[in-house]
Structures are given as C-alpha cells and as structure tokens.
Amino acid sequence: MSFNFEENKTTTILGHSGCGKSTLLKLISGIIDPNEGTITVGNTSDRLGKIAYMQQRDLLFNWLTVKENAILPLRIKGNYKDFSDSDVLQKAKILGIENVLDYYPLQLSGGMKQRVAFLRTILQDSDFILLDEPFASLDAIRRLELYNWIENIKEKINKSFILVTHDIEEAIYLSDIVIIMLPGSNNFIHVKNITIPHPRKNSIITSQKFVKYKKQLLEDLQNVKNY
C-alpha cells in the first residue's frame, strides 16, 4: 500500500476494531518498523522523535505536575529553554487547563487528563501528530468540548494530524480527509474529502452536510464489512 499524508490537514483512518489501525500508527510513529517497504517523514525514515503520538491511555506521569508532564517532550529534546512559559500557558488556556498546571494528574478528572495529554502532544516540536482514539474513554458531552478545543488549537498551530478512530462523527468533525481501512487486508479504500470549513462548531453535527457525510461513511463501512 502507498499513501501520502498531506501537510497541515487532518486525516482520519476509520475502520472496524482489529483491522490494524493502531498498528499502523505504531508503524508511522517509528515505534515498530515495517517488515517490508519504507515509511518516510520529510526525506528520512528515521521517525522517532519527529512525530508526536498520543495513545489511547493518557499516559501521564503521576509523579510530575501537569506542567512538568506537558513540557516533558521539550525537556527530553533539551530545548525547553528556547520555549517560553507564556506559549505553554497560552495553549493551556485554549484547552481550559491553565488553572491546574501545578496539580498532579491524579487530582484531575478523566477529561482533564486527556486534555493535558493532548497539550503535551502538541507541545512536542513535530509537524505530524498521531492521535489513537484519544477520546474513546470520554462521554459524549466531554468529547464535543474537546473537539471544539482541538478545532481552536488547530487555528493556532500548523500541524498535520493523523487520527485513528471507529467513531464516524469524530472522524467527520475533525478531519479533512477520511480513509476507511480494510480489515485484514493491506489496502486503504474510500478516501473521502470533508469540505466543511474550519473552525467547526458543535452545531455542525446536526447540519445537513454532516448528516449526509455520516450516511455515506456508514454505508461505506458496511460495504467494507461484506468485502
């Protein structure tokens, strides 16, 4: 299979459970290497440290404060000093977690922890951001809130997102391109462009265009099942 992820766009990989979505993200991020073929970012296949990867669990370090957790990628690369506190604060504000920067993760709710993990992911100095069902553990209302925050933050940063999910609404809300992944096989099919303008608001969920996309994707997914 061959696919180019476009810059400054959000691409969502949609597929049934167990079709290899998470494995694909592990491959892209560089945690595992492909048996055959190459994955390159820019001109190099050396990907570790170049792609931020937010996994399903929030994976916050319980012995570090929220702020220390968020700036961990900067500390590891040793470029925290080049980075201003005000930038961290500004992004934390957009995510609504500016008041808990000195708290420890265990003092926060699930939704907040997820936002902290998201902040940490976008603070990492990388052009690509991988999100592996990051909001699966949250309830519907929290998720809508988070989609809103993500839309707001995408305005501020120029980054390419690759999102993996099995939630059709999440896929439409957040992405420019939706790909449906075939179970067991090695092919992407049904690339769909979502042309709703950014930044999107929660009200789009009930818009006609949104519902139309949803219907199409649902059909596509069912077709994939019969493949």
């Binding site: 560089g30 945690i31 590891i76």
Partner: peptide, 24 residues
C-alpha cells in the same frame, strides 16, 4: 511498554528512559 513507547516517540534515548521512567 506504552509509557516507554511514548518517551521513544518524544525522541528519548535509553539513558533518558531509565532516568525519567525505569528508575522511578
């Protein structure tokens, strides 16, 4: 494993993984 993978994607080397996570 997940936390170590996370540190790896941040660009952490083996020493950093030990200092930041394993030893803790």
């Amino acid at each position: 494993t997940d936390m170590e993978n996370l540190l790896k994607t941040m660009g952490a080397n083996k020493i950093q993984i030990y200092l930041r996570l394993r030893i803790k």
